[in-house]
């Protein structure tokens, strides 16, 4: 579903990604692992088409469903969630549809067409938060907010979902719940989900496949449960063992 070919990203003289190929199939949750600075977040930005917009140079090709990536093809989920806390949960989810709405039916939330609201309610039901539709997003817990952000991404109707460390800011129980949700969406809705993760343990439990990056190259590609210890410097591994 998602094909990233020859992704090569440079910031000034420094090449962060040296020609990376990654493919995610429909119905698959792919976890991208790697130590800090290995280029895993840059890979996600390249796949999202953001790596060229922040001062970096980006070669390589991103194809979705065999075509060149169009702006609405991929939906993003962020580490820092990025909901508007003062707005209702439902309005936040409706905002995922903004890209296909004309200005006259989207300038204020009251103008959102009924079909969009009902689709957003469906997305909220999908993430198990339909009962919180009219609460302010800021009133929800971190894990619930991230699930609302996933609902917003669903409302975008993209077939590819990119998640940049989606659970790094969450407590362990919420992290399990959000990753469980992403895996389930991949399997039942046939989405291609690429998640950059910090914790190898979570990747082993929820991903279908893991890709490991080191110094801007793919050094590992295998089924979940592949030993990924070699990706991390030795002292980090000790920390991992302690926690």
């Amino acid at each position: 579903m998602l094909q990233v070919t020859g992704a090569r990203v440079r910031y000034g003289d420094r090449e962060v990604l040296h020609g990376v190929d990654v493919e995610v199939a429909a119905g698959e949750l792919l976890a991208v692992l790697g130590a800090n600075g290995s280029g895993k977040s840059t890979l996600l930005r390249a796949a999202a088409g953001l790596a060229g917009s922040d001062g970096g140079e980006n070669d390589g090709e991103v194809r979705v469903d065999g075509r060149e990536r169009a702006p609405l093809d991929v939906a993003l989920v962020f580490q820092r969630i990025h909901l508007v806390p003062r707005r209702t949960v439902l309005d936040n989810v409706c905002a995922g549809a903004l890209g296909r709405l004309p200005l006259r039916s989207s300038l204020v939330a009251a103008l959102f067409p009924r079909a969009v609201r009902e689709e957003a309610m469906g997305c909220l039901e999908r993430v198990g938060l339909a009962d919180r539709a009219h609460d302010r997003a800021g009133a929800l817990s971190g894990g619930q907010q991230q699930r609302v952000a996933v609902a917003r991404a669903l409302c975008q109707r993209a077939r590819v979902l990119l998640a940049d460390e989606p659970v790094s800011a969450l407590d362990p129980a919420a992290a399990e719940q959000v990753l469980g949700l992403l895996a389930e969406l991949a399997h039942t809705e046939r989405l291609a989900v690429l998640a950059v993760l910090h914790q190898p343990g979570l990747a082993a439990r929820y991903a279908d496949r893991v890709v490991g990056l080191r110094e801007g190259r793919v050094v590992l590609d295998g089924p979940a449960g592949t030993d990924v210890g070699s990706l991390y410097p030795a002292d980090d591994r000790d920390l991992e063992a302690v926690s």
Binding site: A48, L50, P71, L72, A75, L76, F78, R80, I81, H82, L83, V84, P85, R86, R87, D91, A95, G96, A97, L98, G99, R100, L101, L103, S106, L107, V108, A109, A149, R152, A153, Q156
Partner: peptide
């Protein structure tokens, strides 16, 4: 943050202002 999120979902400049900036 929220403006980035809406831009990535394809929202235009005025939509970003109306749904991310002004409400916040």
């Amino acid at each position: 943050g929220p403006p980035t999120a809406l831009r990535s979902a394809g929202a235009g400049r005025l939509q970003v202002a109306a749904h991310a900036l002004l409400p916040s």
